[in-house]
Design a protein around this nucleic acid. Sequence first.
DNA 1: TATTCATATGAACATGTACTCACTTGTTTG
DNA 2: CAAACAAGTGAGTACATGTTCATATGAATA
Lengths: 121, 121
Amino acid sequence: MNKPTNLDVCEKHCLHLDRVEQVRGGMLDDRVAEGLAEIFGLLGDRTRVRILHALSLGELCVCDISAVLGTTSSAVSHQLRLLRTAKLIKSRKEGKNVFYTLDDEHVRQLFAQGLDHVLER
Amino acid sequence: MNKPTNLDVCEKHCLHLDRVEQVRGGMLDDRVAEGLAEIFGLLGDRTRVRILHALSLGELCVCDISAVLGTTSSAVSHQLRLLRTAKLIKSRKEGKNVFYTLDDEHVRQLFAQGLDHVLER
DNA sequence: TATTCATATGAACATGTACTCACTTGTTTG
DNA sequence: CAAACAAGTGAGTACATGTTCATATGAATA
């Protein structure tokens, strides 16, 4: 039936219907696209980038991280929660302190690749 | 002199002063951290992820992209501008149409690595 | 030339988000 | 037990950002 999908745009005038069909077939699953955006979004913040990089240099407690970054431990704690929820970091409790480490080899690689991009331009 | 930097937090009670010093020495340059956050932030949006993935499958004009995504060409155009400014994509004009392609091998790799992460979890 | 169309863009609006502040929790230590 | 402290959290706020809408621009076509 070719029931019109939600394409009020360029439905009749679009140039490459064949190409569009082909690309549409190869498109990412919506959940995957969402997941990608999520992980990249988490890396897309200056504070979180610095936290992750600091942790890539070694295990640190919240207090240490905030000292390294020069921000409040509250702000750091909020960001750590996001990273922890996304399983990018993991925590270890020791007395009053909670120590964080990277929990994802992918992230380390993404980080390295991102650095490549930034440094080579 | 050890002039106190802007550390109102944990200045006295922080556990691992040695570790903090060490990590602080290895920290990223601020511009680099900013650049990293910028590139990742650009990838951290569902619409842009889908645009980039569509372009990874082949050259497309604005109209085609909006058809594939099912969004307005205006919204797409706005996002394309961001990606173009960041040199992640490049454009080629042909008559009334403007065709876009990926302009960065790094991005292709980042994308693949991000996919790994999302799919393997 | 007038019209149609693809693309771009600015303003307005709505939503998301990162920080601060106040407070709580749980642990150590005096 | 009480005080001190590290860490977590909810509310509020300021700012960033993605979309829509209206419009502009520039090219093809009637």
